[in-house]
Design a protein around this nucleic acid. Sequence first.
DNA 1: AGAGTACAGTACTAGCGGTACAGTTTTAGA
DNA 2: TCTAAAACTGTACCGCTAGTACTGTACTCT
Lengths: 210, 210
Amino acid sequence: MSIQTQTLSKGEQTRERIMDIAQEAVLHKGFASTSIDEIICEAGITKSGFFYHFRDKNDLAKALLQRYTDNEWKVFDQLFTQADELSEDPLHAFLIFLKLFADLMGDLPNGHPGCLIASYVYQDFLFSREVRDMTTEGHRIWRQRFRDRLDQIVARYPPRVEVNLDDMADMLSAVADGGIILSKSLHDPSLLPRQIMQYRSYVKLVFLGN
Amino acid sequence: MSIQTQTLSKGEQTRERIMDIAQEAVLHKGFASTSIDEIICEAGITKSGFFYHFRDKNDLAKALLQRYTDNEWKVFDQLFTQADELSEDPLHAFLIFLKLFADLMGDLPNGHPGCLIASYVYQDFLFSREVRDMTTEGHRIWRQRFRDRLDQIVARYPPRVEVNLDDMADMLSAVADGGIILSKSLHDPSLLPRQIMQYRSYVKLVFLGN
DNA sequence: AGAGTACAGTACTAGCGGTACAGTTTTAGA
DNA sequence: TCTAAAACTGTACCGCTAGTACTGTACTCT
């Protein structure tokens, strides 16, 4: 995942290791039942070491979410850049992006580990207002990013049916979040990429009619 | 929610009350951090009362999930029956069903409280194998039910684009699950029904072309 | 009127989440 | 090489929680 491991200081490496371990546990058991004892045991440090890096457990929650959203942002940015290099047309670039996105999700060896934001939304009472607002903001940013693309598309391709572009942007987030849940529940890693491709065919139908 | 309150015995009423309180807490804090003490306090009973109704906490988890899936099944059954009464045509009946479904989700006063199955999937390590299998089975049943409808549709309406009917059936679950998450996160109860209506317009595009 | 149902009361335990703080080693820069 | 900050370790403690065990009692239905 992280690209610049060697440039991290020892402390930063430990911090990252703690967060890696914590994130996996959170996605399987929820935040509350992810014990600090368990994290430090797996990380090979002591409780004091943990609290050196994080003020308390909520601080860990916040750091995890921040890192997760930052990373998602980078990934999407990269995919969009890659797609833009392959086509100047906004619709085709978006369709390429969706294919790249689906492929990326399909290439995860054990399937998608789970969306941390979705996990947080189902445990919102555990977190501070600040953390809860971060999940809202994360979804708002995704909407805006996808919406920007759709705005460019409608300028050239009049939609075949009446659509609300915010809803259409949100649908990608919804299909992804829902696809992750179904993928996990049904133990089928290929379900998520197939759902993304289905959203792609919806986009094609709306703007191209086929 | 429940229709036959007056026919329940006193014990069954208490059991239901425990489960109502527990379910709401679980959807906001996760299962692990929903304490028995908190449940009995709100229900106005003692610990003995709780353990009279449930062997242990996992038994509560199982009962909650069972009741939830049973109820979902009844609701969908009712909506399908209602839709079938309004149209003999499989496609139009399905489109009516989706409209009814969206309306029902939009009429919830405080928005959808959350999908218990999705919540469980993000905490799967907390539960016994039996409970985990129940979430898988729940999703499989939904797929089968929606798939049955789609099978009837394709017999009369050749799809305009190549589609996998299992994927298309799953997409409704995905859009619903994802829509619930987005609705909660963005504090917009109308988001979920709008996403369902968008799935509806995908279905229309695929089978009708408009 | 008797028997099961549906709890209440009380008391206990083992274990965990989380906090606090003092002490020690490691690392990096001057 | 010295030093100061960084990166921890060690230990002790508290409150809460799940769960057990048992006795007692009010209600309810036949």
